[in-house]
Every structure is written in C-alpha cells, then in structure tokens.
Simulated scan of single mutants.
Amino acid sequence: MRIAILVEGATEKAFEPILQEFLKSRLQQKMPKLKFISYDGRIPKKEKLKRSVENLLTGKDAFNAVIALTDVYTGTNDFQDAADAKAKMTDWVGNNPNFYPHTAQHDFEAWLLPYWSTIQKLAKSNKSAPRGLPEQVNHDSSPAYRIKAIFETGKCQRSYNKIRDASAILKNQDLMVSVNLCPELKAFINTILSLCEVSEVNLIP
C-alpha cells in the first residue's frame, strides 16, 4: 500500500516521524509506504487539486490512495469549518474513490496543544493552556497563534519556529494523547488504518 499525503508545509512534515512510529506499532507487516508532499503554504485548490490527485493516482509509480490534509484556517475565508473543508475538497476532486480529504481544525497546531506541558518547558513559561478541546480553539486566536504567543512572552526570548519547535514538541510523545482529544486527527489516522485493511477492532474507537 502506497499512500500520498498532501500537506501544507513544514509543521506537518515535523509530524511525519511520530505518525510513522505510531502506525508501525499498530500495522507491523501491513505498514504502508507514506509520502508526505508539502506545498509550502497550503495545498492546491479546485482544478489544481484535482490534477495533483489524478497525477499521483496514475502512471508507473502511482499511489493507491491520496490523502489531503489541510488547515481550516488557511489565511483566507475558503472554509467555514472541518466539514466544509472536506466537502469542498471532495467537490473539487470529483467522484474519486481513492481520494480522502482530511483537515486540522483550525490549524495543525491544534494537535500540539495536548502537549502543553512540553510547550511550557520549551517556551520557559507557566502560561496556562487554552480552555476547551484543542480543535475548538477558534479562528480569533487559533492554536498556532496561542503557541506563538507563549513563546514570545516566555523566558526563551524567541518566537515559535514551526519546523524546530513542532518537532521538539512532538518528540517522544504518545500520539494517543492527542488522538483522544482531537476527532479530526483520529479520523485521519483511522483512514490510514482502514486503507491498510486493518480489522475494525484495530481502528481507534
């Protein structure tokens, strides 16, 4: 099984190693070959997304499936929420059974919020975690903004760096901590598990 995962940029790439390790522990011999394809900003829209997906699913080195992972908050007003983002990506690509749209609501950093104690240590700050579930932190003060703020007000005296700090936050973490708090992350991982023909028992409830 070969799966292409379209992602927006550096932060999601930092997620790749911990995702690989998590999947290996569950899939073992059925572990797929994953390829993260970064678009350095945001994944394509409309006809460009359709062409990208079709190109990846055809040809000599074709993938068996393509997953698109976008933020709901892209700096534009394209998406209202996770459901809207997935519906629009599905519409853009068309009726393609090998395309699987997924999203982080509101941005990828929502999946980092469950590791707030690690964020505090890196930022050298005791600033409290945002209230509520990670994926319910809103557009007005998104998860990425919250993490940026704790770094800039902490004693580390620097701003949040997506590549360096996302990797440091995720290092040696138990991904199930975030999965249990983030339904969109759970759905994304369950898509990969189901593509690898894992029994329903092994899907994350």
Rank of each mutant, 00 (worst) to 15 (best):
S199D: 15
F15N: 07
V53S: 11
A187F: 00
I150R: 05
N55V: 00
T191D: 12
A62L: 13
K148T: 12
L181Y: 08
P134F: 08
P97A: 05
K148R: 13
L175A: 00
L193P: 02
A129T: 11
L112D: 07
D107N: 12
D91K: 15
D81A: 02
A129K: 15
R146Y: 05
E135S: 06
T74L: 08
R26Q: 10
Q80V: 14
N55A: 09
V177Q: 15
N138V: 03
L170F: 09
G132V: 03
K50Y: 03
I169T: 07
L112A: 04
A149V: 03
F36M: 12
H139V: 11
A10T: 14
I150E: 02
P130G: 02
R158S: 04
A14R: 03
I147G: 13
L23Q: 04
V7I: 14
E54H: 14
S167P: 00
K186F: 05
N126L: 06
I150F: 03
K88H: 00
Q120R: 11
I37T: 01
W116V: 07
R158T: 06
V7T: 08
V179Y: 08
S38Y: 11
V66L: 03
R51K: 15
K186Q: 10
Q120G: 02
D140V: 03
E54G: 01
V177K: 15
N98Q: 06
R26M: 06
T103F: 01
C156D: 01
I204Q: 09
Q80R: 15
T103A: 14
G154S: 02
E109G: 03
Y73F: 12
M1E: 04
S128P: 00
Y39E: 02
A144E: 14
K162N: 01
R164L: 05
V93S: 06
L185W: 07
I18S: 09
N77E: 13
T58K: 15
N55F: 06
V7C: 04
I3G: 02
K50D: 03
K127V: 13
S125K: 12
A187L: 08
Q80I: 14
V179C: 08
A149N: 14
